[in-house]
Design a protein around this nucleic acid. Structure first.
Lengths: 168, 168
DNA sequence: TTGGAATGTCAACAAAGCTGACGTATTGTA
DNA sequence: TACAATACGTCAGCTTTGTTGACATTCCAA
C-alpha cells in the first residue's frame, strides 16, 4: 500500500517506497538460490544437504565448539542438529570428544577429510561470491553488508559479529 | 586459502580477500533468517509454511499466471507446488480458473482472503526491510541490490528482472 | 548427598522438496 | 483427421530437515 508518488517526500527517501522494498525482497529471495546452488550440487553427490554444510562451516570456524554452542548459532533444535552430526561423525568428517572440564559437553572438530570437504564447499561458494563482488565493486559490497547486518535479529547479529571478528 | 596480506594487491582489491568473502557469506546466511522470520511467525499460526508464502507472493505479483509459469519462477516441481496450491484453493485463498484461449491452462488469482493474507505477510516483511534500508541509507541499498543481482543464476535473474519491472 | 539443571541421544512425526508413473483434457501438426 | 505434444492433476514413495517428547548422563548447589 501507499506507493503513489509522495509529494512531500524528498528525493532522499525515494529508496524507502514500497516498490523499492519489494524489489529488495525479491532480490533477496532469488539471490539466495544462487548463493546455495553451487554447494548444493556438491553436497548432492555425497548425499548430504545444506544442514551438513552449515555444521561443517561453523565447526571449521570454531574448532572445539560444543554442540550447545553450535545449536544457538544455527538456530535449530539439538535433535535436528544431532542427526546431521551423527552422520558426519560416522563418515569420519567430524570428531566428537568428551569435554575434560565438563564431561557432559562434546567438543567438535573437523577431521582431515572434513577439512577437505569444507574447502571444496567454501571454494565453490566463494567463487560465486567473488564474481558478484567483482561485478558490483567495493562500494556496493560495503552497502551489501550494511543492509544484511541491519536485517538480522538482535541475537543473530551477536552470533554474526562474534564469528565475523574471529581470526581465520 | 591465500589470505595473507597480498603485497602486489592494490588497496582497490582488498574487498576480494577470502576473509571479506567469508564475511559476506556468513552475513547472507544470518540475514536470511531475519528476512523470513516475521512471515514465518504469521504463517505458523495459520499452519502454513514458506512455500505457501512464495506462491501467494508471486500470484499476487502476476495475477492470472499459469501453474507452469509459477513453477519456473519458484524453481520447484509441479508435485511440490501442487500440494501447496491445493491447500490454498481448498482454503479459499486462491482461485483457479480454466483458461479461455487455452483450456488446458489454469489461471491463478488471489481471492479477497488471499489478498488479505498477502498484505499481512508483505507488511511484516517490508517493515523489517524498511528498517534495514533506513539504517543503512540509500547508497548502501543500491549496493545491496547490485551484489544480490550479480549473485543470481542467469535464468533466475531473468525471472527477477521480468517481475521487477512490472508495475505494481 | 541428593535433587534439579544442563548436555546430549533416541523415537516418532510433519513440512516440503524430489522422482517416477499415469490419466485426462486440449492443442497443434503431419 | 489421426496422433504427438503440452498443461495440469494425482498417486505412491522417498529424502532432508525441521519439530516435540521421553530419557540417560553429568554437574552443581542446597
Amino acid at each position: 500500500m501507499n506507493d503513489g508518488l509522495p509529494p512531500q517526500m524528498g528525493q532522499s527517501l525515494l529508496f524507502l517506497t514500497d516498490e523499492q522494498l519489494r524489489k529488495g525482497i525479491e532480490a533477496m529471495f532469488f539471490a539466495y538460490r544462487g548463493f546455495t546452488a553451487d554447494p548444493d550440487r556438491i553436497l548432492a553427490q555425497k548425499s548430504y544437504g545444506r544442514a551438513h554444510h552449515r555444521a561443517i562451516h561453523f565447526i571449521h570456524r570454531s574448532p572445539g565448539t560444543t554442540v550447545n554452542n553450535l545449536l544457538s548459532i544455527l538456530g535449530v533444535t539439538k535433535q535436528s542438529l544431532n542427526r546431521v552430526l551423527r552422520s558426519l561423525i560416522e563418515d569420519g568428517l567430524v570428531a566428537s570428544t568428551v569435554g575434560q572440564r565438563d564431561k557432559r559437553e562434546r567438543h567438535l572438530h573437523l577431521t582431515a577429510a572434513g577439512e577437505a570437504l569444507e574447502r571444496e564447499l567454501s571454494d565453490a561458494q566463494r567463487d560465486r561470491m567473488r564474481a558478484a563482488y567483482r561485478a558490483a565493486g567495493p562500494a556496493a559490497v560495503a552497502g551489501f553488508r550494511q543492509v544484511l547486518e541491519a536485517m538480522m535479529d538482535e541475537e543473530t547479529r551477536h552470533h554474526y559479529e562474534t564469528i565475523r571478528d574471529k581470526p581465520e
